[in-house]
């Protein structure tokens, strides 16, 4: 269960986010959509401990969230792999506190999950964009986080790879990660993956819509209920009049 109360983030005099309150936990995947620049990444960076909170509080399962923690993992828009380190060392980066054998075991398991076990000794420069992003996902999953944060994880991929990764993400993440927060500006991506979607507008980022998505998974992008939800979100963002015009 994650909750944020009266969260505010300002960069000097410029308020990028808030006040914003929400909580989630019963849903597996919470989608966060909104136009570019509205403050989505800022929200993620606050939860990840990469930005200091200006005002407000966050909690994960009752513990206050005040900085980077091992049970909150991040996948960025770019893979952000360390170019000098092998795939194995990249994935094991956050497991420095574990003994070698345990670390190796966890890394191997994570690499198998993203189907890259054969590339454990490769360098990042030898990977395609999709593979590199899967290594980034393995690095986030390796410590079995309670909350996984994804910031437009597939936006930099080509359209075909993107659809493939969207279809496989839930298999990869599995039920081991109780909560996933998926930030995206791709409404269809949010609809394919999320159990609930909050629509942001801004800056400063604020919630303008909160929608439960009760469609069975895997979801068909062409189905009528799917398209109805899509229209609903588009209307929220742009207004019915603009869409009709």
């Amino acid at each position: 269960m994650f909750s944020a109360k009266s969260l505010v983030k300002s960069f000097d005099a410029f308020r990028a986010l808030g006040p914003l309150s929400f909580s989630f936990g019963t849903e597996h995947v919470l989608g966060v959509v909104g136009p570019s620049g509205c403050g989505k990444s800022t929200l993620l960076r606050l939860i990840a401990g990469l930005e200091a909170i200006t005002w407000g509080t966050m909690e994960l399962d009752g513990d206050p969230v005040t900085g980077a923690r091992s049970d909150i993992a991040v996948v960025f828009q770019e893979p952000r792999l360390l170019p000098w380190a092998s795939v194995r060392d990249n994935v094991g980066l956050g497991l420095w506190h574990l003994p070698r054998a345990q670390r190796q075991e966890a890394v191997d398991a994570a690499l198998r999950r993203v189907n890259l076990f054969d590339f454990a000794d490769a360098l990042p420069k030898q990977l395609s964009g999709g593979m590199a992003q899967r290594v980034g996902i393995a690095r986030a999953l390796v410590a079995k986080p309670r909350l996984l944060l994804l910031d437009e994880p597939f936006a930099a991929l080509d359209p075909l790879t993107r659809v493939k990764m969207q279809d496989h993400l839930l298999d990869i993440v599995g039920d081991e990660v109780p909560n996933v927060l998926l930030i995206t500006h791709d409404i269809e991506e949010a609809l394919v993956l999320s159990d609930r979607i909050i629509v942001l507008d801004g800056p400063p980022a604020r919630i303008v819509r909160d929608i439960a998505i009760d469609l069975p998974k895997p979801r068909h992008r062409t189905g009528a209920p799917f398209q109805a939800h899509k229209a609903e979100i588009l209307e929220t963002l742009f207004g019915a009049a603009d869409l009709a015009a």
Binding site: G49, A68, R69, V74, E78, L82, L93, G94
Partner: peptide, 21 residues
Amino acid sequence: RKLIEVGRVNRLSGLRMMTRI
């Protein structure tokens, strides 16, 4: 900075941030 952030979310500090990144 993006790589340093990777170090930060993986809670590398001080010496470890230095040698790893």
